[in-house]
């Protein structure tokens, strides 16, 4: 059984979560490179995972939070692998990773 976190450390972890998530969000708003997008998505997912673990702890059910976190880590890795594989194929097929060049909705 994990020991209860103090209120201060909860706040520190929470600030870390917001920081990670914010970096991911702002990054997604400004980057157009497919690889960077995958990395930024990973950052946001990690923030979410941390959030789950923290929420489990605060709610007094650390086991539940941690098991959910592990599940998401697995799923998230698969997402990253497939996204990177797609990025490789995109680069091979179109010769670019720039989203603006890849977009077909409006020319």
């Amino acid at each position: 059984m994990m020991s209860e976190l103090s209120a201060q450390s909860v706040q520190i972890v929470f600030a870390g979560i917001i920081l990670l998530f914010g970096i991911g969000l702002i990054g997604l708003m400004i980057t157009r490179n497919l690889i960077k997008i995958v990395i930024l998505l990973q950052l946001m997912a990690k923030a979410a995972i941390l959030g789950m673990a923290l929420a489990g702890n605060v709610a007094g059910k650390p086991g539940l939070g941690q098991s959910l976190a592990v599940t998401v880590i697995v799923v998230d890795t698969v997402v990253a692998v497939i996204a990177l594989a797609l990025a490789v194929q995109v680069q091979k097929t179109w010769g670019t990773l720039d989203l603006k060049d890849l977009s077909t909705l409006r020319r």
């Binding site: 997604l28 708003m29 997008i37 977009s103 909705l105």
Partner: peptide, 14 residues
């Protein structure tokens, strides 16, 4: 409003 640009979509979400 449907630019198809990821940046705009994420900004909208945010």
């Amino acid at each position: 409003t449907q630019t198809g640009q990821l940046n705009w979509n994420v900004a909208g979400l945010a």
